Amino acid sequence: MTTSLLENVDEARSALYEVVSRLAAADNDKQTPNAKFTVAQLTEHLQNSITLLGGAAGADIEIASEGSAADRLLPQAQTAVDAWQRRGTAGMVTMPIGEFPAEVAVRILTSELLVHAWDYAVSTGQDFAPSEALATSALESVRMIIQPERRDGDFFADEVSVSDDSPNLVKLIAFTGRDPDWSPAS
């Protein structure tokens, strides 16, 4: 399982790369499916998440305040993934929010990268089709991580109902409280 989790976090980083590398400065003010975030605000949020989760693996990541979303996110994400590749998923890690099994931290990072890649993609009209294996793994992870008390509308909204035969990416997005059918016009 360890190798699979590390492969998944790298694949999620690649999915983020594909979407973020196509963002333009004109996209910064676009709304994302999370009503709290524009594209620019999502970039800041994701930088903080990557810094926190990469730091748990020993990465020293500085938050860049200048440059495109790609310039700000992609080197950070690569540094975080590289740190996890070196560290592995055994044992516990300490983060400002407490101690966690390292495996959980990697699962959170994978989910953050993948779900926010989807946020960017739908906000900017990009196609987004990560592998079914990655979507399945991330869905399994968020089902472990997102507890009912976290569904306060601040961290996560209530799960959106979707068909049982929906693809796992749709189930993942719905489980995080996002509407899988969201579009900028909605």
Rank of each mutant, 00 (worst) to 15 (best):
A135T: 07
A80T: 08
L113T: 05
G98M: 05
F128M: 11
S68N: 06
F128T: 07
P75H: 04
A64R: 15
G88T: 03
A80M: 10
E132W: 03
G91H: 07
E66L: 14
T94E: 05
L114E: 05
A121Q: 05
G91R: 12
M92W: 00
T94A: 03
R107E: 12
T136E: 14
L109M: 15
R86I: 09
G125E: 04
S111K: 02
V93E: 00
A133V: 09
G67R: 13
T89R: 05
G91T: 08
F100N: 04
A80V: 08
E132P: 09
S137N: 09
S123Y: 04
A117M: 08
G88W: 01
I108N: 06
I97A: 13
R150H: 10
G88R: 10
T94L: 03
L113A: 09
A138L: 06
G153P: 09
T124L: 06
S123C: 12
D119I: 12
A105I: 13
P148I: 03
D154P: 03
L73S: 10
G91A: 10
V81F: 03
D82K: 13
Q126D: 06
R107T: 04
D152L: 13
S131I: 06
D152Y: 09
M144F: 10
E62Y: 07
Q85L: 09
E149T: 11
T136G: 12
S141C: 08
L73T: 07
L114A: 00
E149K: 14
V122S: 05
A77H: 02
S111W: 00
V104G: 01
A135L: 12
E99C: 01
G88C: 06
T89V: 15
E132K: 07
A121E: 04
V81G: 04
G91I: 13
Q78W: 04
A64C: 07
A105P: 06
E103G: 14
A129R: 13
G91C: 12
D71Q: 07
R86S: 15
A90W: 00
R72S: 08
G67I: 09
P96D: 01
D119S: 07
F156D: 05
S123T: 12
Q126W: 01
V81N: 07
R151Q: 03
R86M: 13
F100H: 05
T94V: 07
P75Y: 00
M95E: 03
R72H: 08
S65V: 11
T89F: 00
V122Y: 01
A105K: 04
D71E: 11
F100A: 06
V106A: 12
F155W: 08
R87C: 01
V81R: 06
L113N: 06
G153R: 03
T89W: 01
R86K: 15
A83H: 03
V106M: 07
T124W: 02
I108Q: 13
T124G: 09
D127K: 11
D71S: 04
R151H: 01
V122Q: 10
R151A: 01
W118E: 11
E66D: 15
E66H: 14
V122F: 02
D71N: 00
A121T: 05
A69P: 14
I145N: 02
V106G: 05
M92S: 11
W118D: 11
A117P: 12
T124S: 11
W118P: 12
A90R: 13
Q78E: 05
P148L: 00
G153Q: 02
A69S: 14
S137T: 02
F155L: 14
D154G: 10
D152I: 11
A69I: 09
E66V: 14
E140A: 15
